[in-house]
């Protein structure tokens, strides 16, 4: 029996802590606890109001069992159609613009000045949320689906260009170099050396973005940028929970079918 063994026998064993330094461990622990307490304390809740609302909450959940698609059918239909139109148009335009920007934002194929400009566009688009962009665009272009369309196109660019650029940056260099070595021009090189490698992922991401665009289009109406959101907001304001439930069910169904569709398309492309 070795001496080290004698030293540990009879000793209590404890799992080594995740954070080695004792003071840091305690600081983080106490700090998070204090934060949580402070956070909970500063939420003012009007419990009377919450209690009052429980009936309405129950009414809303019940409304899901008997959604009313009929009484506001034309509003729902118009709103949904407008949402879909915005989604389609914005996805097409957004994807079309994000491909050149994505190429420009990939360090391995773009020269530095273009790279910086494209990365700048991507950063701005990603930092501003859809709803804030929509508020500004509504202020500038007036109410209506044009503002929503522009918002979604702009958001698509930030999302898709960034992921496309990352994909290009991590692609297999050898394949691209082989095409370059054959004396291809820049466009030919992109077409033969780069495109085949990133295409499947681009298609997958685009489908995913269509899905996101539809979900976002459902809220743009809240600030007057068109789509189903306005109808939904009205339904909530009038406490017409059965209509609201109908709209939410429709949104969920459309998102589910989009996900299903994108699953099929992604499986076919790969």
């Amino acid at each position: 029996m070795s001496t080290e063994l004698d030293a540990v026998l009879g000793q209590r064993w404890k799992k080594p802590p995740l954070i080695k330094r004792r003071w840091l461990r305690w600081t983080i622990g106490i700090g998070s606890l204090a934060y949580l307490v402070a956070a909970f304390m500063t939420i003012d809740v009007n419990w009377a109001r919450v209690y009052e609302g429980l009936d309405r909450g129950a009414a809303f959940i019940l409304a899901f069992t008997s959604p009313d698609f009929v009484s506001r059918a034309s509003d729902i239909w118009e709103g949904l159609l407008e949402s879909i139109i915005m989604t389609v148009a914005a996805s097409v335009v957004g994807i079309a613009i994000s491909i050149p920007i994505g190429l420009g934002a990939a360090r391995n194929i773009a020269p530095l000045p273009i790279y910086l400009i494209c990365r700048g566009i991507v950063a701005i688009s990603r930092a501003l949320q859809e709803i804030i962009v929509a508020i500004l665009l509504v202020a500038i272009f007036g109410f209506g689906p044009l503002a929503g369309f522009l918002t979604l196109s702009f958001a698509t660019i930030g999302f898709l260009s960034k992921l496309l650029a990352e994909d290009i940056e991590s692609m297999d260099k050898v394949q691209a170099e082989a095409i370059k070595a054959s004396g291809a021009r820049w466009l030919q090189w992109i077409n033969y050396g780069v495109q085949p490698q990133v295409m499947p992922r681009l298609v997958g991401l685009s489908m995913y973005r269509v899905d996101i665009n539809f979900r976002e289009s459902a809220i743009l109406g809240l600030v007057g940028a068109g789509g189903i959101g306005a109808t939904l907001n009205t339904a909530f304001d009038r406490y017409e929970y059965d209509t609201a439930a109908a709209i939410l069910i429709l949104i969920i169904l459309i998102v589910m079918s989009l996900e299903y569709l994108s699953g099929i398309i992604r499986a076919r492309v790969q």
Partner: peptide
């Protein structure tokens, strides 16, 4: 599927 703004809208109506 449903954006947090819509959930917020709903919850404001309720609570």
């Amino acid at each position: 599927s449903i954006n947090s703004l819509i959930w917020a809208l709903l919850l404001i109506a309720v609570i």
